[in-house]
Design a binder for these strands. Structure first.
Lengths: 223, 223
DNA sequence: GTAAAGCTGTGAAAACCGTAACAGAATACT
DNA sequence: AGTATTCTGTTACGGTTTTCACAGCTTTAC
């Protein structure tokens, strides 16, 4: 189908907004809202209504002119687009503090990413129960990935081991890697990597803080 | 100085790349590399050399035409721009799993953000030692922020409490909030917020995974 | 000493994204 | 019934970001 192919040619910026739309819509659904206009939804997310409609337009539109969006139709449509209409089995590699935090992050399951495997090499951690399942030895990695049909892996190992582990993941059939290690992973085509660098986040925040402090100093000296 | 004011009018996209440049440069510095060309540095980060030079150009350039960049000069220059030439005292609000993970994230200190306060309301957590300091009661929040001159707060409380806590932080003098709660914080001008939504990250990854799977199916049926 | 190669700084071109404007359709109101 | 209002889908516009191209400087090779 041409539409599927086309629906993947979408700006990154739009893709990053889809989860925000879905989150807000689920919230509305939970409090019993049935209809929502592009303006209402957009304003609650601090964006322009035209942008929201433009985003939806990439996927063909979800309503008819003159009628607001129906929450009950929009939610499954977005889930379909994002790829979580069916639960996506997920693994966590690295059961350190961050891995534990993510394993216990309840929303992961709720939002469509049930954790079907937690792995580590540390003998002290192997066997420990986390969220109803034991931490497994890395030896079992390939076996569990295949048996549980895991497609996405969350990587929270030290940077030095990230590439080695990534190679094993790809070999075992993983298609998406959510990488928390500060390393640039090289993966073959057909594998998606998303880097989540906490250091980048806090540093760009720091840049803005510095700018705010500077402008405050200027204001003082100017007065 | 006009330059300071100007140096804050920089595209967000550029700001987000600065930490990546710094990280890579520190790595080069650690292995003894003295000079690096824009091409070398850019290629190791999977971006175009012209973009890197363009980014640096916002700050006036760091070399002279004809000569490559000197790592030893670039590192402190970037630290100055990002605002971490001096350590930036930081607090963690919420000592749950994620808060603990961040508190124990060694690099935070190394990268210029020493944790000077960890707070929670849970009596079971208060007093527990994390990374050499006790978890404090939220009652002490304002006092510690003022005493330690804390400017940046990492917010890892539940979404329902995020806005209330953010208000207290702003009131106490916090200028930058690194928000991990899935909530849209409203803050006055002069306060920077950076939202880090783990759910958004994994969902945009899921979108790409779905696209990869679809294109693979198409390839099969086409063959 | 001169030519060649390599490098940055810089401004213009191209690509991309966000915003605005409007046509057409459904509803609400008089 | 007819008009006004509200709403989406869609296209065109404007601004921003990325990429390209090149001028000018520095070193290297011969």
């Amino acid at each position: 189908m041409a539409k599927n192919r086309k629906s993947c040619e979408v700006p990154d910026a739009t893709i990053h907004r889809l989860p925000l739309y879905l989150e807000k819509l689920k919230l509305l659904q939970a409090i019993g809202v049935e209809d929502v206009s592009s303006r209402q939804l957009a304003e609650s997310l601090d964006i322009k209504a035209s942008q929201l409609r433009h985003d939806f337009h990439y996927f063909g539109g979800f309503s008819r002119p003159g009628r607001p969006y129906q929450v009950a139709k929009l939610v499954p449509a977005l889930e379909q687009i994002i790829g979580i209409a069916e639960p996506v089995p997920t693994a966590i590699i690295g059961a350190g503090h961050l891995g534990q935090a993510l394993a216990n992050y309840q929303n992961l399951d709720v939002q469509g990413f049930p954790v079907r495997g937690i792995f580590d090499t540390n003998p002290k951690l192997i066997g420990v129960e986390m969220r109803g399942q034991p931490v497994r030895d890395m030896d079992e990695l390939e076996k569990v990935i295949r048996e549980e049909k895991i497609k996405i892996a969350i990587l929270t190992v030290p940077a030095a081991q990230a590439q080695t582990v990534a190679n094993r993941l790809v070999e075992a059939g993983i298609i998406g890697i959510f990488n928390f290690a500060p390393a640039d992973l090289k993966v073959p085509e057909g594998v998606a990597v998303r880097n989540e660098r906490l250091a980048v986040g806090i540093m760009s925040l720091s840049f803005k803080v510095k700018c705010i402090l500077q402008s405050q100093e200027e204001d003082i000296t100017e007065v």
